[in-house]
Design a protein around this nucleic acid. Structure first.
Lengths: 225, 225
DNA sequence: CGAGTGATTTAGTCACGACTAACTATAAAC
DNA sequence: GTTTATAGTTAGTCGTGACTAAATCACTCG
């Protein structure tokens, strides 16, 4: 029974929380400018909103230092993340979207759908734990699995790994990867690692793929299985 | 220099257009108070918005008289109506909603979904022409079919008709009707019409149903097969 | 025809969430 | 340790879209 006191958070507030969560999750600190950059807003707008978020007890603000989500803020952020990822998965699995064009649609819908609808979608999908990009879907209780992955360039030649996750949202890159068959779930063997940030060569279903450094860094792999 | 437009109408503007369309469609005149009542707003709020809508050339405003949609306003309203009805149909057909609880969800989503998504949903449904309540779904070009219906109390005893449409959105009434099997598409024969606004008795698949006056008025029927 | 009533509009506020301009804190450079 | 660049904050404004209070229009009734 979710008595979300934050009965209703505005669209903007949800966007801020999502960005703050993402920044802290990826190790960056959630500074005013980092948030402003991510949301494409002017810094003073962020300063103002941060103050309101702090008043609403969604973040703790250390002036001139940055912000940290409170427990409530984190719960709210995870709820939005769940919506976003379930939505993306649903659009891809049930409505023929491709993983490179779901993001924008999900971005708008995550603020509009009810909890009920999200749970219906989740059920229709068999309650998945990962979205099409391999990102973990937070559970209803806020629990989110933490998969340890290794970027492809750090995998030794000869090793066989699974692609677990793709760390980019850029549509053109995603399209290229999909065309090459390099999607979460597939198994690849590293055939060659060129030095000096050179490309990686892998074998996928017996065929060779050469992957540039930038892209290879976005392919996050797991060793087990 | 109020230019604004087409590109994106705000959520509020869309709601106003929808209500104005609905009012004029059902024969009522779209006066300030009628709009205010429908949207549960204070009259001055409506006055203000009507002015803005008129500046944006979405409505024509005859002060103290009421408002009429312009061609552009009508097109915009029909686009939203299409979204709403496709959405309702999709939620019922694909996500297990019942016709009495789709309205609110569709109400929020109609403002957030892209045209692309709506068309995907429409295709997934086989491009339906009617929503679960029997309301016609406007086509992409704005064309909307006009089905001539007769309220059940005006059908003569002995006549057999089809229920084409249900003219209420009230969840409790819809639930009762669904339980009784009185949904769009079914064929019924009028067995009795009590005078003085009394109930109507019909036969549905050989079983009898007695329907109170209020509800019977909401059942809009067609005679042709 | 004038008074009254109800619908409508104007006037003035408020909250939200963006912006620019200008000020201040922190940290790095000499 | 002062200077300076950069990041952050304050102050003030704007647009949207709601509100209340007060004025105004239109129509009906005596």
């Amino acid at each position: 029974m979710t008595k979300s006191l934050a009965s209703h958070l505005s669209r903007s507030v949800e966007d801020y929380l999502k960005v703050i969560y993402h920044l802290t999750e990826t190790g960056e600190s959630a500074t005013t400018t980092a948030i402003a950059d991510a949301l494409v807003l002017a810094a003073p707008s962020v300063s103002g909103m941060v103050k309101r978020l702090a008043e609403a007890a969604l973040v703790e603000h250390l002036p001139y230092k940055g912000v940290r989500l409170t427990h409530r803020g984190r719960r709210a952020a995870l709820r939005i993340l769940r919506r976003h990822r379930i939505m993306e998965t649903y659009l891809v699995s049930c409505l023929g979207y491709t993983w490179d064009n779901v993001h924008d649609e999900a971005e708008k819908l995550e603020h509009a759908v009810s909890d009920d609808l999200i749970e219906r979608m989740s059920r229709a999908l068999g309650d998945p734990h990962f979205d099409p990009h391999g990102d973990p879907i937070p559970a209803l209780d806020g629990h989110i699995v933490d998969v340890t992955t290794t970027p492809l360039p750090a995998i030794a030649v000869g090793e066989t790994v699974n692609i677990a996750r793709v760390g980019t949202g850029a549509a053109d890159r995603l399209r290229w990867l999909a065309d090459a068959g390099l999607v979460p779930g597939v198994r690849i063997t590293v055939l060659d690692q060129q030095p000096f940030n050179g490309p990686v060569t892998v074998s996928l279903d017996g065929t060779r793929r050469v992957i540039g450094r930038d892209l290879a860094l976005q392919l996050l792999c797991t060793r087990q299985v």
